[in-house]
């Protein structure tokens, strides 16, 4: 099981005595994240080097990929106007491509390659980005006051006698913590889902490979977990992010 927990934490800035805050830095995760970003950047750079009205092969492939993301956003947020839908496409596409590639980065035949998403810190950062962006969009759509009023729950605007209004107002004290715990549970669920799926895949690969003496099963399992599961989990993550964004957008167009 030594392959699973391959972590190398820097507690100090190398060569100095300066401590790194928050308990250090996981070097492999950061290095592999940078590798993923470099690979992604190189692919896009190669595809967009010579842009033409009549696209070449690489450009056509890239346009196909980006068009599929545009379709996904369009189908999920049918009600929103065109210019508001378009601003979410790069975010969703970047999230999907980054997660898909970082799940499949083990296909690069180099030593010290780890999937960055099998570290909870990485997935937690991704979850913070997606949930925080949804929160930002909700606040941008409704304003801070409107956001808090909606978080106070459905009984906040109750009419009628003084007692009913007072009860409705005070019910906000119950609904507001519920709302924030819901946001927290969104964050935990979206990041733990990605982490658990990728880590579970790594565990299954390790155990089954050890039991079968590395003969036939590793190849099949790698094909399943590094190609199919990687794209599936990336799709699920970006789709859930899109759903959170849709809920923020829905309030805007009402």
């Amino acid at each position: 099981m030594e392959e699973l927990g391959q972590v190398h934490v820097w507690h100090y800035v190398p060569g100095t005595d300066i401590p790194i805050p928050l308990g250090g830095m996981n070097v492999f995760t950061v290095m592999n994240t940078l590798l993923v970003v470099a690979v992604l950047w190189a692919l896009f750079w190669m595809a967009t080097r010579r842009l033409n009205m009549v696209p070449g092969r690489a450009q056509a492939l890239l346009e196909l990929v980006l068009d599929s993301f545009k379709d996904m956003v369009d189908r999920t947020m049918e009600f929103a106007p065109e210019h508001r839908r378009r601003q979410y496409v790069p975010f969703i596409a970047g999230l999907f491509l980054y997660i898909c590639l970082s799940n499949a980065i083990l296909l690069v035949p180099l030593p010290r390659i780890e999937k960055p998403t099998s570290d909870l810190n990485d997935t937690l950062a991704l979850g913070l980005i997606s949930v925080g962006y949804a929160l930002f969009c909700a606040i941008r759509a409704k304003g801070i006051k409107g956001y808090f009023v909606e978080a106070m729950g459905p009984l906040f605007h109750s009419h009628g006698s003084t007692a009913a209004v007072l009860m409705g107002r005070s019910s906000g004290l119950f609904f507001l913590p519920m709302h924030f715990s819901e946001e927290m549970s969104k964050l935990i669920s979206i990041s733990c889902r990605l982490f658990g799926n990728i880590m579970g895949g790594a565990i299954v690969i390790t155990i089954v490979s050890t039991m079968s003496y590395y003969i036939v099963f590793p190849q099949i399992l790698y094909a399943f977990f590094l190609v199919f599961e990687a794209a599936l989990q990336a799709f699920v993550f970006s789709m859930l992010t899109l759903i959170y964004l849709t809920r923020a957008e829905q309030a805007h167009s009402e």
């Binding site: 889902r193 658990g196 789709m239």
Partner: peptide
């Protein structure tokens, strides 16, 4: 697929 992924998270918590 999205619904199953949300459902699956319970098992993923158990795995974690």
């Amino acid at each position: 697929i999205v619904g199953q992924a949300v459902t699956e998270s319970v098992a993923i918590y158990a795995l974690v």
